[in-house]
Design a protein around this nucleic acid. Structure first.
Length: 564
RNA sequence: UCCGGAGUCGUCCAAAGGUAGGACAGCGGACUUUGAAUCCGCGAAUGGUGGUUCAAUUCCUCCCUCCGGAACCA
């Protein structure tokens, strides 16, 4: 059944349309999509949805393909660094575009030729009004626009002006090229939209070759047409652009059956995350986070560093579906996809994040036993790691309670619990510091319980993780939590910065079992009973840094919380 | 108010002129050498009105609500 689902490909309205077009032989049976990021920021979870959609659609036909095209028409915001990061993140997510890497800037010359052609045909003109005048002349929702005094300028004059604009003879703002459509249109986008503006900013690819740059609407559809795109999939906010998209394609003479068609879908919003590039850039610039790849960022780079797997992100994108209604996806859906994949792939080991000392009183001081424990208890073929047991250990402070509530199965005075994989111990005495804080648990063990179960078959409900003090490896562990404390940061007129979660990062010094001390950058593991972690690139030999990707579900915490 | 979109469980997505389905979340239980995972079960929705029809959530009318649009941004 799942085979069937997969061979059918994604089931959503865009895929349905593509299948229908394919079946009807539209575009001569050709299928081509594109992912068109602007290189002015890093890719984030919202882009992942568009990527999975576009690359996924291309697979609906054996000959289908998805181009990567950088929409680099505004040099003032764009940088090569971003383009490189985007390619890196795309590959990490699992996509490949082969030789089909394009840049809108590669089409500048063609675009320019088309523009001159439009002028000659009376479909465009150079407007020499100020930005203020142009805005005023456009009217508003209730007021029709008025024609620019330059609207009837002779084509020859516009041509001359445009050439001089291109050559850099005018200051920015002196002139623009506008399409001559209809200043009375109810569709404000059609009130003589601007095609080119003068910009003397050097471009990251074309350098100072150009002094005019095309506006999105005058570049996007044309780029699609040049590349033979059949389905130009974009988000809802571009719906209002579609009539203009189509007008330009017709104006430059693309025959009807060959015009790419724009299809819009709802962008992704995830609870407790933001996907506004402007806001993400602000977080980075104002140093609310450590960078675009801060593990708390919803960027692919940040998620990668946090320990997300590409598989889990793709699975999430497939599960949320594609539709035209705006919404806010519950972050638990993302977390579920993450845990699901991590659970299936992460080796297990033990680490104590908030250590409290344990001494096993009736164990010889020089006792040492090495257990060979499975890295994956459900699959012994995945190997084992060696875990030493000695008289002095660390256990988690939170796993001990001096006066436990009902249903507490863990360490407490007189209570027998199991040290995971090792043996059974009972707390005999509790030592306190001056401030009353527990400093040490003195326990007794059952020497016949080596391995973790008692020969008499008595049941021991609680199991806790532990680390031999003598062999423990110290490491920094960064406990990440949601960056925002509000599900919809910035909603209403709230400033999203006031909703940053003050506890989104806690750094602790942990005690690791020896095997964990030999992990390498980007390796992912499960700290048993705690969560999934991965090794941060800032780790140094002998000074590992682990990032908490996500905690394990904790039904005890839930129970305890419910009972107050 | 003008133009363009959208309204289905708490959330996201699906279906359909004839018992509205899945996932996540929630709740309950089983199992457990991870209070994890796994398994089983439960509750939960078609914005409103009028109409067409044997039957409307689906088709039509009117209304309501929400989102986007007046950048020389994408």
């Amino acid at each position: 059944m799942s085979d069937e689902l997969e061979s059918d490909g994604p089931g959503n309205f865009v895929a349905d349309k593509v299948r229908e077009d394919l079946a009807q032989g539209k575009f001569g049976g050709r299928l081509r999509t594109r992912f068109p990021p602007e290189p002015n920021g890093y890719l984030h979870i919202g882009h992942a949805k568009a990527i999975v959609l576009n690359f996924g659609l291309a697979e609906l036909d054996p000959a289908g393909r998805c181009n990567l095209r950088f929409d680099d028409t505004n040099p003032s915001a764009e940088e090569a660094e971003f383009a490189e990061a985007i390619e890196r993140d795309l590959r990490w997510l699992g996509y490949e575009w082969g030789e089909h890497l394009y840049f809108a800037s590669d089409y500048f010359e063609q675009l320019y030729d088309w523009a001159e052609d439009l002028i000659r045909r009376g479909l465009a003109y150079v407007d020499s009004q100020s930005g203020e005048q142009i805005r005023e002349g456009r009217g508003d929702f209730h007021r029709p626009g008025v024609n620019s005094p330059f609207r009837e300028r002779a084509p020859e004059e516009s041509l001359g002006l445009l050439r001089r604009m291109r050559a850099g003879e005018f200051p920015e703002g002196a002139h623009v090229l506008r399409a001559k459509i209809d200043m009375q249109s109810k569709d404000l986008k059609k009130r003589d939209p601007i095609m080119y503006r003068i910009l003397h900013t050097p471009h990251h690819r074309t350098g100072d070759a150009w002094h005019i740059y095309p506006i999105y609407d005058w570049a996007h559809g044309q780029s699609d047409a040049i590349e033979g795109i059949t389905h130009s999939v974009c988000t809802l906010e571009f719906q209002n652009h579609r009539p203009l998209y189509e007008w330009y394609l017709e104006a430059i003479g693309i025959p009807e059956g060959e015009r790419p068609q724009q299809v819009e879908f709802a962008r992704l919003n995830v609870g407790f995350m933001i996907t506004s590039k402007r806001k993400l850039a602000q977080l980075v610039e104002e140093k609310h986070v450590a960078g675009w790849d801060d593990p708390r960022m919803p960027t692919l780079a940040g998620m990668r560093r946090r320990g997300y797997t590409p598989e889990s992100i793709r699975a999430f994108c497939e599960r949320i579906g594609v539709a035209k209604r705006d919404g806010l996806v519950d972050v638990t859906l993302l977390e579920h996809a993450l845990r699901e994949h991590l659970n299936a792939t992460s080796p297990r080991a033990m680490a104590v994040l908030d250590p409290i000392e344990v001494v096993i009183d009736n164990m010889p001081e020089d006792f040492e036993h090495v257990f060979s424990l499975p890295l994956d208890p459900t699959d012994e073929t995945r190997g084992t790691r060696e875990v030493p047991l000695t008289q002095r250990l660390y256990v988690e402070r939170g796993d001990f309670m001096e006066d436990p509530p009902k249903k507490w199965w863990r360490l407490a005075p007189g209570r027998e619990v199991r040290l995971r994989g090792a043996c059974l111990v009972t707390v005999k005495r509790v030592e306190h510091g001056d401030d009353g804080e527990v400093t040490r648990l003195v326990c007794e063990w059952d020497p016949d319980s080596l391995g973790g179960s008692a020969p008499d078959g008595r049941k021991v409900r609680g199991t806790v993780h532990w680390v031999s003090a003598k062999h423990a490896v110290d490491a920094e562990v960064r406990l990440y939590d949601r960056l925002f404390s509000a599900e919809d940061p910035g909603a209403g007129d709230t400033d999203f910065l006031t909703q940053l979660n003050p506890d989104s990062l806690k750094v602790v010094s942990a005690k690791l079992e020896p095997w964990l001390g030999t992990r390498e950058v980007e390796e992912r593991v499960q700290f048993e009973r705690v969560g999934y972690f991965c090794v941060d690139p800032e780790s140094e030999p002998g000074a590992l840094v682990f990032n908490r990707t996500i905690a394990l579900r904790d039904s005890w915490a839930k129970l305890a919380k419910k009972k107050g």
